[in-house]
Structures are given as structure tokens and as C-alpha cells.
Simulated scan of single mutants.
Amino acid sequence: MSDDLAARLREQGLRLTPQRELILRAVEELRHATPDEVLAHVRGQVSSVNASTVYRTLEVLEELGLVRHTHLSDRAPTYHSTREHEHIHVVCRGCGSVRSYDPEIVASLVAALGEDGFSVDVGHLAIFGTCADCSAAGS
């Protein structure tokens, strides 16, 4: 991880800092995390990291292609590592659970939009609804 991060940072004229390494590791460990969740995770190891460092670093990491974000709520974006396979997100409005699915599940939608000249960013796709547990609880 740190070799890839260091190489990508050097390409952009930036250096590898302990904060950047901690923040990338936090995103990878948390799998889907908001900047505040990343901050809390990092502060568990280094209390001196502040919110602006996390936000700036997440932007840099996204520009480098090491993390991506999607909107899984009406609040802050949620970040995940690009080391994971590309996936779409399914979010339950009841309990807030997030599940990842292979993009093949929306292949016909992507193909139909492609025929109309639209290129879909599947990794940014989030579908909202109600999970089976919440549906059963509401019945």
C-alpha cells in the first residue's frame, strides 16, 4: 500500500506523510466511511489529526485514484478503496445498511444508457430502498 501511495504522490510532486498513510489505511479498513468516520478512526491512533487534514487528504487520494466516493445519504460522501472490486451500493432507508453488488446486476441499464450515448460511472451508483429485514419488520 505505502509503496503505491508513495509512487503516486511523487508523480504529483507530493510526499508521503504519516497522516496520508493513516487516512488511506482507515478507508481500507472501514470499507465504506464518511470523512468523520475516517477522522474518528485515525484519531484512535493519532489524536493530533484534524478534520481539514482528513478532507484534504481524501481529495488528494481520490485525485490519485486510490479512493472513490459515493453518496449513501443526504449528508457527507462515503469513501471506499479502489483496491476493492468495482461495485454498486444498495442502501436501506430503514436501517441504513449498505450492501455491495457486482455491477453486472445493472448491466442491462448500463447498456440501454450506453445505446443513448451515456457512459455510466457504476462505482458511484447507489440504489436506495428497503432491505428484507426492514420490510419484514414493517409488515
Rank of each mutant, 00 (worst) to 15 (best):
V38G: 01
V42D: 02
V42K: 00
Q45T: 11
V46G: 10
V46L: 15
S47R: 13
S47D: 14
S48C: 05
S48P: 03
V49M: 08
A51R: 15
V54Y: 08
R56W: 05
T57H: 00
T57I: 05
T57W: 06
T57S: 14
E59M: 04
L61N: 05
L61A: 07
L61H: 04
L61D: 10
L61K: 00
E62C: 04
E63Y: 11
E63S: 15
G65R: 06
L66H: 03
V67F: 06
R68S: 14
R68I: 12
H69Y: 12
T70H: 14
H71K: 15
H71S: 13
L72C: 15
S73A: 10
R75W: 00
A76G: 05
A76C: 07
P77T: 05
R83D: 15
R83I: 10
R83C: 11
E84L: 11
E84A: 14
H85D: 15
H85N: 15
E86H: 13
V91M: 02
V91F: 04
V91S: 04
C92H: 06
G96A: 01
S97F: 10
V98Q: 05
R99E: 11
R99T: 10
R99H: 12
S100C: 13
S100M: 11
Y101H: 13
P103Y: 01
P103D: 02
P103H: 02
E104Q: 12
I105L: 15
I105M: 13
I105Q: 13
I105G: 08
I105E: 14
V106H: 03
V106G: 00
V106N: 03
V106C: 07
